[in-house]
């Protein structure tokens, strides 16, 4: 594992990466007709960390990313929104990964779907109107698709970058 003195720097690099993903995503006028549907590029970083670094590190970076990105590119509501989606999606991914039965794709897909479930729940609570669950089918399908795309990308990244991150190859270089 990572030596503790390097940990802050090591995780800081991931946080920077996740923030850049947030920024890139905020630049793309990605619009599918309903608010809340996004590619979820930062989930690529979270999935990668889940496999290559560790669950609690992934959670820490994810939460810091959401709060910082909210201040930088969004507002209080986007933090609330993202936090609900991010935490629920993280929980789903960790649990599914822990079963040991599935690969990266199902883990990422469940993350994508649960992210949207978390968001619509917060939205319903904030506006005190439960009719917005009308959009649930579309949001679930969108979460599935974005999760699948991110999963395919994450699989490729983990395969190529994973050995360096876990220290197998890093130590040789030191």
């Amino acid at each position: 594992m990572i030596p503790s003195r390097n940990k802050a720097a090591f995780l800081g690099v991931f946080l920077a990466l996740a923030l850049i993903c947030s920024y890139v995503e905020s630049l793309i006028p990605f619009y599918f007709g309903i608010p809340g549907v996004k590619l979820g590029l930062t989930n690529l970083v979270v999935v990668m960390m889940l496999y290559c670094v560790g669950a609690k590190e992934a959670l820490a970076v994810s939460v810091c990313r959401i709060v910082l990105a909210g201040f930088l590119f969004g507002n209080m509501f986007s933090i609330l929104y993202s936090l609900a989606g991010g935490l629920l999606s993280f929980l789903a991914m960790v649990l599914l990964k822990r079963t040991g039965q599935f690969g990266v794709l199902p883990v990422s897909i469940s993350g994508g779907i649960l992210h949207n479930v978390g968001q619509i729940c917060v939205a319903a609570l904030v506006v005190e109107n439960y009719n917005i669950f009308y959009y649930l089918p579309v949001l679930l399908a969108a979460g599935f698709l974005t999760g699948l795309l991110i999963g395919v990308a994450a699989q490729g990244v983990i395969r190529r970058v994973g050995p360096f991150l876990s220290g197998e190859k890093r130590r040789k270089g030191e």
């Binding site: 560790g54 669950a55 690969g103 699989q155 395969r159 994973g162 991150l165 876990s166 197998e168």
Partner: peptide, 9 residues
């Protein structure tokens, strides 16, 4: 649970 060797799909 950290592993770099991931199974394919």
């Amino acid at each position: 649970h950290v592993t770099t060797k991931i199974r394919g799909t």
